[in-house]
Nucleic acid binder design. Structure first.
Lengths: 181, 181
DNA sequence: GTCTATATCTCGATAGAC
DNA sequence: GTCTATCGAGATATAGAC
């Protein structure tokens, strides 16, 4: 691992946050450069094109979610609860990274879609290994996906619109896994 | 109800499909006009701005999903199964309409977000009335949302990635509602 | 390694012919 | 009611100074 220049990291973070927080359209080269504190020309020294910027983001995505998978596999409450618990968007760096890649995938980016699908298959494997049954594992995955999608499009929360807390959702997950709450 | 001109309908359909199938960025005035078979100037005669185009789409959304809610309330299998069953994206007009509004909401449009939230609260009410319990209703809603989101970002299906059919997901829903499969 | 300047393209919207 | 022509803003990307 060669230590990447500081500006490179700052540019990737700026790109991630702009896409996640203000949408793909807001993440212009100029806006990304400004948020990272460099000029447009400076950005284009590190990433020769917008596509290169995306490629850099997907590399970070794969690396960070490989680590997250380790945490999920080792969680004392089990992968299912870990997955659903962390599917509530709370604005962490990892949340923003996921949402950014999700938005790019929804925007039509094929490599983003592939990176996302690979990560999700990994999660499904862990949940299935825990609950034994494929359909139940899928149902739990879908709940997590729904939670993420719902809580990530701008501050809306199941608490607000559906009157249900995360703990109550987790209790339903426990009913499915057979774990006592 | 005044009968709207044919071109108006064609433009709204073109806008809906471009947003749903190729993303918000692809839905430029020129692309929408071309898909509807008119010129950019022709489009701007019917809709004076891009915002007016969005407003027209949201009106169609509200009208069509008010009708869908009637079907959901009257479904012989019950609202929960109806909801999850129809949450699998199959590319119908109603599917494309929902995905289009979802994408616009995710892109930051406040009116799109409001229209979506109102519709989802309506669904939640029906599901809760059926299952009795708020948390269970929310869990079912989340499964549907997850299914929609997953199956709508370009052809991916739970069957393909998770090895689970819609019927198997519905069986899990039945476990939650207490209905026998 | 970072900047300014600029070329080129595409977007939304206007104007006016038909 | 629909078209072509065009404007002004803002986008990506290039060139070259420092």
């Amino acid at each position: 691992m060669s230590r990447p220049p500081k500006a490179r990291e700052a540019l990737l973070s700026a790109y991630r946050d702009l896409v996640a927080l203000e949408g793909e359209r807001a993440a212009t080269l100029e806006a990304v450069a400004a948020r990272a504190g460099v000029s447009k020309g400076g950005l284009l020294y590190h990433f020769g094109s917008k596509e290169a910027l995306l490629k850099g983001l997907l590399e970070a995505f794969r690396a960070d979610f490989a680590l997250d998978r380790e945490l999920m596999a080792a969680d004392p409450e089990g992968p299912s609860r870990y997955f659903v618990r962390t599917s509530l968007y709370t604005g962490t760096e990892l949340d923003r990274l996921f949402v950014a890649v999700l938005r790019l995938a929804q925007g039509g980016s094929v490599p983003a879609r592939e990176a996302l699908a690979a990560t999700e298959r990994g999660w499904h494997e862990l949940v299935r290994a825990e609950v034994g049954d494929t359909a139940t594992a899928t149902a739990i995955m879908l709940m997590g996906e729904g939670l993420y999608q719902y809580s990530s499009y701008s501050g809306a929360r199941p608490e607000a619109d559906f009157g249900t807390s995360l703990d109550e959702v987790l209790a339903v997950v426990d009913r499915l896994t057979g774990r006592r709450s």
